[in-house]
Design a protein around this nucleic acid. Structure first.
Lengths: 193, 193
DNA sequence: GTCTATATTTCGATAGAC
DNA sequence: GTCTATCGAAATATAGAC
């Protein structure tokens, strides 16, 4: 199941999280994945190919740990699920750190690399819509456009906070508190415009 | 007045805006500035030196266009000034685009480059405090910690929106609208906790 | 599909003349 | 202070054997 490609992509996510997109050296990636550089070029044409596939991979993985839940556990209320979806991205665990920092890197790279833009825009849209849907469950009377705007703000804020956390200017607990308050503030605003 | 160093730094800001920090080649910078690579190394020790000084430069410049106002013009109310300080960073003019994209790049680079972290953290702090002070003028009854938190959220949101704008997923007008609403929402929350 | 070895390119950095 | 010329070190990418 863990095919060679997957193994390489997992390694790529680790390397990007550690060194950044700009710091990803094919040779280091090879070492991390325990394969040769030749094999990497065999599977992913060139450096850009590696990056593109890694974005996709990161993305799928984030979707998984964001969505999947223990089937035993009590079902969450919409409000709890909302907090969960957002706060899961602000945790100091290796996997989340990896995902967040790779995501930030890819976002930053997309500014200068049109090839990455499309995938990124699509992934962002899916995420915003998910959050908007949850906001709608908490505040069913709010108009769709208002919900969408709040979702865009919350997700953009999360990205901003995440960058500050990763670049060392903001403690993770403080970042989480700020995000929680933002959810509160936005929900209050949705209640009576 | 426009010394050689300044001329090089202006060119660096342009190159970073166009190619990113990771895309900044000393040779391209030399061409853009109309000088030799040797001269660049004479003025700024090494590549990291270029980056550090460019961050400082970008920073000063942003402070200027953020703070400076036509002395003829009517003085702004605190609320207007607040909108101005924030929205000035979301404009599709060459100078702002340059500044924003260089800022985003430097932020992203700082995740993997400890040398950049300190300068960045300091600059961020100054900015957050400025915004907090303005919020305090609009809502004088709000406690300092609450003001600080709102300022952190608004500036982090701005950074997030800015990245989405620059990476092509968000129209500038929409980004501005979202930010304006966020200011509104935060001010409302400050009014009665 | 995978590896080893190597060709090729790119880029940061320096030496030395002016 | 500034330029020209060049070195040397990565780093990307390919060729060819297995």
């Amino acid at each position: 199941m863990a095919s060679r490609s997957t193994q390489i992509l997992e390694a790529a996510a680790r390397v990007i999280a550690r060194r950044g997109v700009r710091g990803l050296r094919v040779e280091e990636l090879a070492a991390e994945a325990g394969v040769s550089t030749g094999l990497i070029y065999y599977h992913f044409k060139d450096r850009t190919g590696i990056l593109r596939h890694t974005l996709e991979f990161i993305n799928d993985r984030a979707e998984r740990y964001t969505t999947e839940r223990d089937p035993e556990a009590e079902p969450l209320t919409a409000r709890e699920e909302l907090d969960e979806v957002l706060l899961l991205e602000l945790q100091d665990t290796p996997e989340v750190r990896e995902n967040s920092s790779a995501w930030g890197e890819l976002r930053a790279s997309a500014v200068f690399d049109p090839i990455l833009r499309e995938d990124l825009a699509r992934a962002t849209l899916v995420w915003v819509q998910e959050v908007a849907a949850l906001l709608g469950q908490v505040q069913p009377m709010a108009p769709a456009a208002t919900l969408a705007a709040a979702a865009e703000r919350l997700t953009a804020l999360l990205e901003g906070l995440s960058m500050r956390w990763l670049s060392g200017g903001l403690a993770i607990e403080h970042a989480r508190a700020l995000l929680r308050e933002a959810v509160e503030v936005e929900l209050t605003a949705l209640r009576k415009p």
